[in-house]
Write a protein that binds this DNA or RNA. Sequence first.
DNA 1: CTCTCCCT
Length: 981
Amino acid sequence: MGKLRKKHNWKGRHQSDTQQPADEAKTDVVVELQAVDRLKGVDESNALVLPANKAKKKKAWVTPVSTKRPLTKKQRKELQTVLERKEKKVRRADILSKLAEVQEARLKLPVLAEEQVIMEAVRENPCVVICGETGSGKTTQVPQFLYEAGYASGIIGITEPRRVAAVSMSHRVAKEMNLSTRVVSYQIRYEGNVTSDTKIKFMTDGVLLKEIQKDFLLQRYSVIVIDEAHERSVYTDILIGLLSRIVPLRNKKGMPMKLLVMSATLRVEDFTDNTKLFRIPPPVIKVDARQFPVTIHFNKRTPMEDYTGEVFHKICKIHRMLPPGGILVFLTGQAEVHSLCRRLRKAFPFRKSNEESAFKRHLCHQSLPRIDLDNYSALPVDEGDEDREAGIGDEEDEGSDLEIGDDPNDAEEKADPSIPLYVLPLYSLLAPEQQAKVFRPPPPGTRLCVIATNVAETSLTIPGIKYVVDCGRVKKRFYDRVTGVSSFKVTWTSQASANQRAGRAGRTEPGHCYRLYSSAVFGDFSLFSEAEITRRPVEDLVLQMKDLNIDKVVNFPFPTSPSAEALVAAEQLLVSLGALKEPPRTGRVKDIEQARLSCPITPLGRAMASFPVAPRYAKILALGKQQDCLPYVIAVVAAMTVREIFEDLDRPAGSEDESSKLNQRRARLTQMRRLWAGQGASLLLGDLMVMLGAVGACEFAGCTPKFCEDNGLRYKAMVEIRRLRGQLTNAVNAVCPEVGAFVNPKMTPPTEHQVVCLRQIVLAGLGDHLARRVQGEEILDPKWKNGYKTPLMDEPVFIHPSSALFKTLPEFRAVWSEVPLGLDSVEAEWVPQLLPQYCHFSSPQESPSPWFCSSTGTLRCHRASTFFRVAWQLPAVEMEYPDGLERYKLFSRFLLEGQVCPKLKKYVGRLLSNPSIMMKTWAKLQPRTEALLGALVSKRVDCRDTLYSVWKTEDKFLLSAYCQWLPEALHQEVAKSWPPI
DNA sequence: CTCTCCCT
């Protein structure tokens, strides 16, 4: 016990750290700096990874001292030693003070007080839950505790739900521990710095899940830490489920492993009270957070309609009446963010002299010399505003000194340049340069006001925020559980996320949070937001799990299970994509039900599971090698996977200048779209062709920010596509090395033939996303005229005006994701051929009558069909004759006619009955028809291939049955040359 | 005709 305490004592560590030779430490720091400089593909907008001022300071002492004059060799040498010694001393002092700083910072973290408790719990339990709010320092400290307590016999793996966090945490911990990034490393989707020396590895949750596919027992790891488990991201949930099984397995095999689940909120019951997950509930250790207090102010009334108006008024009041400090506002979407920004900039403009140079470019024309007050007073003032204003401040906060009084004579709408407000938008899709502005101090004399969406809740932390204004709402995606069709809705947030938002006001000093809803409304919020896994389709997760040989996904120990409907829908989709074996359709009802939820994976499914994209796209990739289409298929799948490849140019402009620039860029993009869509045949590939053109052109130009900017492409999206193309190319080569795929930066456009092929390949993956133009009799509403119906929705969908197919309006088209933007026109006769699993076929047509195809050796026919659920009539197409007795009858008829085996042709004239009697219903009355049919059925022979293979083992097969059709005189001759191959 | 946020 005493020994343990000493081991975990920070003082002990402090000493051993400082005892490190200065030189060694120096190299470590330098390496790390280089690594920071080279950081690629990481969102530079995050404060955590921005190269800080400190970096510059540190670089200074790396530069060699260089004042040299002509000296004697000896003098020079002496002087050099002196200099070196001096320099070394300076370095050592610097390092010591830095270490002291770090140690001090570490000491302030509440988690340090719990080190001993945590480590004892870890020693005594295979799984431990650590519960601590943001600011407790658990993410950076717990890995160090583990390392120092000797748990680094294997790798200590820590998962994060976001790439930025994995990268920045690895750097921070390396620095704190004064270890090289060779030892404290990270791995995210496209990059990493893991080496054979790595002991602490930060990674995204998806990366670890992929590693489990390669090594189920994770033998290289001694500990896994799941961070931010409260966020309940799908991968985190699945990892916890998997690890709850892996940990006991490892212990049983004598390769012990520890699992730590770290969660911010106290909602840990899903982990601890779930006996399916952990039979023995893991201990929960609570860690206090070091946060400044945040005073919460509720509204007395809750605006239901115009909450953005309410937000506007609240910001005005804070800005006019309260002491300095940044304001962070939570709204639900891009459009809201922009419109509020505009309104605030008009209300509190600031002069040019206050502006930063970067800011100048965009806004210099906006700061007008004088504002037309009449014009402003004409702006719509929110109805019922006074009413609400009177209600500001809730009982709970009466008398609080920062409570904002309500002055009905407030004239916020009048421009007031005397108190400039530095208003910035912030949302995920905003260009990184724009995002980065929120991390810089505002221009002198102004107050920072960031209007943000949910990104600011978890992903990005803005410094200097003292006031938070929370509208209490979120925009969320909702999926229909059966059809998988999605839509966006604005709803109330949860209490947990409202508290998270409030916490953003207390990072640097005590703060205030203004909630624009009453405490009663807050009380009605759900405590936590639902786990993501219950809110979305799960076909991708199910495929991954089947690939791990978890056939009965229903029995998987999810912390929270997806609904049964979602699981059934996922298996159905995977079956129709050919990734899972079709379940039997006959048998007892109960068995059928069971089988529907435990379909085993197919070889195709395994290949699909190895492609890091959605199953529909994985299917498209799997078909991609045909007709040399692979490079195009990879580019198209990459483009479909990355969201928003085109810049949003429809946003409202801030100034006339900006507006005219936007108009120019819009015009340019429209022109480029037309160019990329191509002419004639390629046009039918629709928006896929536009994307293919955009990707090709961008890559051809070297994928530069300039090219993207000039052509309306989102640079970040194009970089992601470029890397995804590389990754997908490797993945395809791994499954199918003979295709030898490579990324060609100078890809030429596909030929007409390839375009047709691409359209078909894409269709094969998007069968359930087929849409048909609303037909004459279906137009119930004039608005539906150019609409499209999908099998899944009652309401029609429309082609986006910017779509390449807007003017063409093909009868059938494929849509993907939920955006009606992505289109590819589809020929009606492809549907039954490429998507037979979605079609109901009628019986084979009489005319043209079924025939024997001598090249394939099978029976062919024409069949009409209808598309599933919606029963769209599809044209008759040529296809295999369906299985069944009829097919045997037909086959025997063609056999007798000498079509199957040409050698039998010479006996046709000698047959005792006409072969066509095989088809009559009274055929059974004839012994010879029955003999022939019976023989074929007994060996399941209904095509040439199976007939030949039976003859290989049984060369007299069919001889006697056939002889019954011939006069006895011929029997011997026939027997001699049997089988007639 | 209008898209919150993440991950392999």
